[in-house]
Every structure is written in C-alpha cells, then in structure tokens.
C-alpha cells in the first residue's frame, strides 16, 4: 500500500530530478558531436575567477543574512503568539512581489540618478551622486541579502519556536549566565534551523544571475550569468559542465556545514 502511495512521488522525482541530472551529466561529458570528452571539464580552468567571485559573494551575503536573520527570528519566536503572525506576514509580504521586479526596483531606487540619490543630492546640495552603489559588488550582496533574507529567518523561526521555554529556566537554575544559556543551550538546539537557513540562502546566492546583471551593472559575471550565456550561445556542453562542477561545489560546502549538526542529530533540517 505504501509503495502505491509513493509511486507518483517516485515518478516525479525520476522525471524532474534524476533525469535532468543525467542529462546534465551526459552533456558535461560529451562534445558537440555527442562523443565522449572530458575537455569541457578541463576547459573550466578559465572560469575559476568567476567561480571564486560567486562563492565569495554568496558566503558574505549568507553570513550577513545569518547575522541579521537569527536575532530577528529569535525575537519573533519569543514575541506574543498573536504578534508572531503579523511579524511573519510582514516578512513574507515582499516575497509576494516577483523577485525580478524587486531587484529591478532596487536598481532604479539606488542608481546614481535614482530616487535615493536625488533626495540626498538635494539635501547635500551637490551635483555628484552621493551614494555610488549600483555597479559594485556591494550592491550585489545587498540585493542577495534583501531577496533571500526570509529564507534564512523562516527555518530559524520554526526551529526556535519549537524549543521548550523551560529550557531557558532550567539552564538558568543550573547556573548558566544569559550569554551561556544562549551559546550552550539555545544556539545548539537551533542549529538545524541555522543549517537549513544557510543552505536555503547560500545555494540560490551562488547560482543567481539576475541580481548580478542588474545590480552589478554587468561589469562582472557570476557563475549563473556564465551558464546562462553558454546556453544562449549554443555551448550546451560547457554550460552543463559548469553546472555540474557548481553542484559538486555546493555539495562539498553542504558537507562541511553538516559538521555543525550532531552526527546522530535527529532532524538535521533539509540537508542535501
């Protein structure tokens, strides 16, 4: 009976997860004519700077998301239940607008002649743009944090709100200072939420392409842009090879993150 119920899911997984992966593998290890070749992988050396930039920006953005997101999630989880709903709604509200539109709006707002700058220019009485953000890597990081912050807050919120409130009291009774309670009890207990949050932010950050094009001014590329361009230029094999290597890199970084959860951990979030 169980197997019948699972059949649609297995069908779905094979059709949309396993099969596409096999296709990526196939293209990555063949040349244009369809015969076996490892040159696509070898040629990836040229893209190393792009890989590096993508990972660097994603790591920084994820860290900022964590630093902002954890206290926020904790505060929401500790607020009154009737307020929690409103806070979560406020957090989700921006996500009802399409990501592309949000990103484009950030560009229009922060541009050298955009709304923010024109107000600042009036305030300071200058003709030069006060904030030159768009076109820098800082802008791309800002965009990533803005777009993906809810993905960090939500899993941490879920995890923290499940922690029994008496844990805090118990730890205090046994002589923990508030700081110790946080680091020895609450943080370890919410580690699975943190891991999920980090995963859910890091992975889309590494592979994003729209944000870097609009907010980065197109002066540098992230790996997502490169993959997109390969496919548009008909270089599917190289594009597939880059995707494959990126997947492997993501798996490695997730494996490293796995070290933080208990090896025998019950619910390890949504790792891999």
């Amino acid at each position: 009976m169980h197997s019948i119920a699972a059949a649609p899911h297995i069908f779905w997984a094979v059709l949309f997860i396993v099969l596409p992966l096999l296709i990526v593998l196939f293209y990555a290890f063949t040349d244009k004519a369809g015969s076996f070749s490892i040159w696509n992988i070898v040629a990836l050396g040229d893209y190393m700077p792009i890989f590096l930039t993508s990972i660097e920006l994603a790591v920084i953005a994820t860290f900022i998301c964590l630093v902002i997101g954890y206290p926020l999630a904790y505060a929401i989880a500790r607020s009154k239940p009737e307020h929690q709903k409103i806070f979560i709604l406020m957090l989700m509200l921006p996500m009802w607008t399409n990501l592309l539109i949000r990103t484009y709006s950030i560009m229009a707002l922060l541009d050298d002649g955009g709304f923010v700058n024109s107000v600042l220019m009036k305030l300071f009485g200058t003709d030069e743009p006060v904030l030159h953000i768009i076109g820098t890597k800082g802008a791309v990081i800002f965009g990533m944090v803005y777009d993906f912050l809810p993905y960090m807050v939500l899993p941490i919120y879920t995890c923290v709100s499940k922690i029994d409130k008496h844990m805090w009291e118990a730890a205090s009774d046994l002589g923990c200072s508030p700081v110790k309670v946080m680091t020895k009890v609450i943080l370890p207990l919410s580690s699975s939420g943190i891991i999920s949050g980090v995963t859910m932010v890091l992975v889309p950050c590494i592979s994003t392409f729209y944000i870097s094009q609009k907010l980065g001014g197109g002066t540098f590329e992230l790996i997502g842009d490169t993959i997109e361009r390969q496919f548009l230029n008909g270089a599917r094999n190289i594009g597939a090879a880059i995707s494959l290597v990126m997947m492997i890199l993501i798996l490695i970084s997730l494996a490293i993150m796995n070290k933080f959860t208990d090896a025998d951990g019950e619910d390890g979030g949504i790792i891999v």
Partner: peptide
C-alpha cells in the same frame, strides 16, 4: 570608465539621468 554593461536597463538609466 564604465558604469556598466547594460541591455534594456539603458532606458531607465538614460531617462533617469543615472548615466
């Protein structure tokens, strides 16, 4: 010297006097 490589964003950037 460039502010960026752009496609359609050029409409907003030029009419909005960002570039």
């Amino acid at each position: 010297y460039l502010q960026g490589y752009v496609n359609d964003e050029i409409f907003d950037k030029m009419t909005g006097e960002s570039a």
